[in-house]
Design a protein around this nucleic acid. Structure first.
Lengths: 138, 138
DNA sequence: TAATAAATGCAATTATGTTGCAAAAATTAT
DNA sequence: ATAATTTTTGCAACATAATTGCATTTATTA
């Protein structure tokens, strides 16, 4: 458990601190996406709000986590499963948000055909967000 | 121009007010997506911020506009092209956001294969957001 | 045109995110 | 192992975004 977390931090040249370890563990255990607010709630009176913002930002820059856009103005973060490098995320997979329990799943294994854009458009990042009811709520 | 706006409001059982007319017109003229902030800027010292919030909310509920999730926590709104009814949006089309000029395009005509979810998952809404450089900036 | 219903604008409040800086912790060099 | 250096944290202050209640204004209906 803890070993993976330490490795991730070391591999990314990040100082090993309490907050980084704890927040990374949360993502591993969540097995889904977390919002800033979720982390704040789960780590009751542990870390400052600012620390959480900065930690998420650092993780995102390093390619440890990626953002998932949602329609309701709440940015979600999830662990990058594939090989992301600093500034170049490769998480072009599918995200599913349950309208009922609000859990966000990363459905890495679901394929989707690559999207052809009109002439003159260059693709950088693709986000597919499907919402509906998940298997637990159905 | 104005006729269409009035029809839309009437068809949705909405009182015809100045702000609703103006904001609807903005969407029609924009031919793309608008953020709350865009509307606030375009309608200089005309409507209260709160009115804009409430108008957008009303339009969204009625199925006149829909939200477009973005990675940078800025919710965008655009006119619904297809037949949306209250609470049931059908805007399962593609959105393209230019990383350079920030314009958001609704690429209705681009097809994409429908996405098959794992067993137990029910699909309600699909959002595909592609970001990159648009034809004007390329 | 009067009565009723709905929408607006203002003020106050809450939530969300950012910045600078001193204290604390982690890394490194000795 | 300890001291010097660098990085991170937490606090305070600030800035922005969004929500709520209520009185006034505007639109709809009778």
């Amino acid at each position: 458990m803890n070993t993976g977390v330490l490795d991730i931090l070391r591999n990314n040249n990040l100082s090993i601190t309490d907050s980084r370890k704890k927040i990374l563990e949360m993502f591993q255990q969540a097995d889904g996406a977390l919002a800033h607010a979720d982390i704040e709630k789960k780590s009751k009176d542990k870390f400052d709000r600012v620390t959480i913002y900065r930690t998420l930002q650092t993780f995102e820059q390093k390619g440890i986590i990626h953002t998932i856009p949602t329609a309701d103005n709440a940015v979600l973060y999830a662990l990058c499963k594939e090989a992301c490098t600093q500034g170049h995320h490769q998480d072009n997979h599918l995200h599913f948000i349950c309208d009922n329990c609000n859990t966000t799943y990363c459905l890495n294994h679901i394929p989707f055909s690559s999207i052809k854009l009109p002439k003159g458009f260059t693709k950088n990042r693709t986000d597919i967000i499907v919402s509906g009811i998940c298997n637990k709520c159905n």
